[in-house]
């Protein structure tokens, strides 16, 4: 009986001992004391919270694009104008060579002394190359689409177009005069046509130089 009584006392004593609070119940009660181990850890701010606050706000209304454009046409234009630039620079180099050879040919044929004709073939070749390159350069620009609206006003491009337009007129005149001058071999007026061909040649090269210069500088 003593043992049973003692066991009962022991059980009662065990039941009466204070237990650790169940966190999910007692922590919610206001003012409930908490042990240090039960206090929730303060949330650490994200590492970038101070240095990179969110910029995902919108203060302005959404707007539709203002310029309707054809993206494929833009890409095609850029390709053609890139080629235009490369071929144009090559044309300038050939035109320079043609002008030099043309002057040498005129000096050899008509300026002084006996005519040897040693620059004749070179001039014909460089002249043909110049005309071909100039035509190709012009066609690349003419066939480039213009999907974006043009801005009004006179700018570098306007001057470039004027200069190359003048060069085109000069080039056409040079082709006609050059062929006609060559056909006047033995005639007394051949030197006159040759001089005109020379002068227009310089004018044409000056126009080409202006056209290139407006873009480069």
């Amino acid at each position: 009986m003593t043992t049973s009584f003692g066991a009962a006392v022991l059980v009662l004593a065990l039941l009466a001992m204070p237990r650790p609070a169940v966190a999910c119940v007692f922590l919610d009660e206001p003012g409930a004391p908490q042990s240090a181990s039960q206090q929730p850890k303060a949330e650490e701010p994200p590492p970038n919270a101070v240095t990179n606050p969110p910029l995902d706000f919108e203060l302005l209304d959404a707007k539709k694009p203002l310029v309707p454009v054809d993206d494929a046409a833009i890409r095609r234009r850029r390709t053609l104008l890139s080629w235009h630039q490369g071929v144009g620079l090559g044309m300038f180099a050939v035109a320079l060579a043609n002008t030099v050879v043309g002057q040498l040919n005129y000096s050899d044929r008509f300026a002084s002394g006996p005519s040897t004709g040693r620059y004749q073939l070179a001039h014909e070749l460089t002249a043909g190359a110049t005309v071909a390159a100039f035509t190709a350069t012009g066609l690349l620009a003419l066939f480039a689409p213009t999907p974006l609206p043009k801005t009004d006003g006179f700018d570098r491009i306007s001057l470039h177009k004027l200069a190359t337009g003048a060069a085109a007129a000069g080039m056409a005149a040079e082709v006609v005069l050059g062929l006609y001058t060559a056909s006047r071999e033995g005639y007394l007026n051949q030197p006159d046509f040759a001089a005109a061909h020379l002068i227009i040649g310089y004018f044409t090269f000056a126009a080409i130089t202006l056209g290139v210069g407006t873009i480069v500088f």
């Binding site: 694009p65 310029v67 993206d71 890409r75 850029r78 974006l148 801005t151 570098r156």
Partner: peptide, 18 residues
Amino acid sequence: DCNRDEHMLEVMNVCAHP
């Protein structure tokens, strides 16, 4: 310079990013 501005619109892909 209208040519430069056009080129700028091309490289900036103004269709997608106006």
